[in-house]
C-alpha cells in the first residue's frame, strides 16, 4: 500500500474490500504464468469497468433493492439490487419501476388494446390495469438485475 522510500514517500493506491466506485479487473489476452515476470505483461489489454458495461446514463441511474416475489419468473428475487435508468422510455415488455399508491413497485409494462398494464412475473399475482384515475407513474426502466450467485 505505502511505497516508502527514504525521501519520496507517497500513496500509490488504497485497497479495500468493497470498492464502491470502480472495480478494475485487468483482462489478459494471453494465459497467465505464475512465478517469473511474464512476457505477457506487455499484452495486458485494458481494465474492465463494470460501470461502463452496465450504466449508459450515470446521472440518471439509480440502484434499488427488491422486496417480494411477484417478479420471480423474470429472475428478480427478494434482496436483489436492480439497476434503474430514468433516462429511458419504457417499451411494451420493459421491466419498470412504477409508483403505485405512494410506493415503488417493479413490474413488466405492457400495452394491450389501448390499455396499459403492470404485469407480475408470477402466476400468483393478478395483472394491474392502469386507469387514468390512478396515480401511477413510470419512474424508471430496469436495465440489469444484480443477484448473488
Amino acid at each position: 500500500m505505502l511505497m516508502a522510500e527514504k525521501t519520496d514517500m507517497r500513496v500509490k493506491e488504497i485497497w479495500g474490500f468493497d470498492g464502491r466506485k470502480k472495480m478494475k479487473i485487468p483482462m489478459f489476452t494471453t494465459g497467465i504464468s505464475a512465478g517469473f515476470p511474464s512476457p505477457a505483461d506487455d499484452f495486458i489489454d485494458k481494465s474492465l469497468d463494470l460501470n461502463e458495461f452496465l450504466i449508459s446514463h450515470p446521472s440518471a441511474t439509480f440502484f434499488v433493492r427488491v422486496e417480494g416475489t411477484s417478479m420471480i419468473d423474470a429472475g428478480i428475487h427478494p434482496g436483489d439490487i436492480l439497476i434503474v435508468d430514468k433516462a429511458l422510455e419504457p417499451n411494451p415488455g420493459s421491466i419498470v419501476i412504477a409508483t403505485l399508491d405512494g410506493e415503488f413497485t417493479v413490474k413488466r409494462f405492457q400495452r394491450r388494446a389501448g390499455k396499459c398494464f403492470l404485469l407480475a412475473a408470477n402466476p400468483d399475482f393478478e395483472p394491474i390495469e392502469i386507469e387514468s384515475s390512478m396515480l401511477v407513474e413510470v419512474w424508471g426502466v430496469v436495465t440489469y438485475v444484480i443477484h448473488k450467485a
Binding site: F62, E67, T69, I76, V106
Partner: peptide, 14 residues
Amino acid sequence: RFTTSWKELPLVKA
C-alpha cells in the same frame, strides 16, 4: 441515504 449507501437503497415491491 438512498444514493450513497448500499445499506439504505430505496425499496421496491415486487
